[in-house]
């Protein structure tokens, strides 16, 4: 079977992999690059556990062909923290106990950061609708929404201070 050679930027690093033409970006991240932080909960774009940011926009990596990533920028959960310094969204998820099993968490964190990058002061309703594509079965969403609102407040404060 023919394999495509793909060169792409993942979390700022240039990466190369071979993929079959029908392989998804999610499978390539997990199987070819060993980055298993992005999860497959459905494989059909319905759960958001595989959320990554592709050229600045969040997408379900299960709905992207790996070949499409040629020359593009991919940001995954593995790139959210800077070294051991957690991003405020990650820190607030921990402080608010916004995860129980933790399986949907990477997708939620990537999606939440994507929201706050675009909208530093979202309302609760905006947070809920933005995250409607990310399913969580454990928390009932309450603590997740609170964590995102908290992170937004902290980021606003950081920006003001800076």
């Amino acid at each position: 079977m023919s394999r495509n050679h793909v060169t792409t930027t993942v979390n700022g690093d240039e990466r190369e992999f071979l993929c079959s033409p029908g392989q998804t970006l999610l499978d390539a991240l997990r199987d070819e690059l060993g980055m298993t932080g992005s999860k497959e909960g459905c494989g059909s774009g319905d759960c958001g556990a595989c959320t990554v940011v592709l050229d600045g926009e969040m997408v379900c990596s299960c709905l992207v062909l790996a070949s499409e990533a040629q020359g593009r920028r991919v940001e995954t959960i593995e790139g959210i923290a800077e070294g051991s310094q957690l991003h405020p969204v990650q820190q607030k998820f921990l402080e608010n106990a916004a995860l129980q099993c933790g399986f949907c968490t990477p997708g939620f964190i990537v999606a939440s950061k994507a929201l706050l990058d675009k909208n530093p002061n979202p309302t609760e309703t905006e947070v809920r609708y933005w995250l409607a594509g990310n399913l969580c079965r454990c928390t009932g969403y309450d603590k997740i929404v609170r964590a995102v609102m908290d992170a937004a407040a902290e980021l606003r404060q950081e920006r003001t201070a800076a």
Partner: peptide, 15 residues
């Protein structure tokens, strides 16, 4: 186990 889970490092069933 929080940091592992918010950074995508925790190893689940399919990982």
């Amino acid at each position: 186990d929080g940091v592992e889970k918010v950074t995508g490092k925790a190893i689940f069933g399919t990982d």
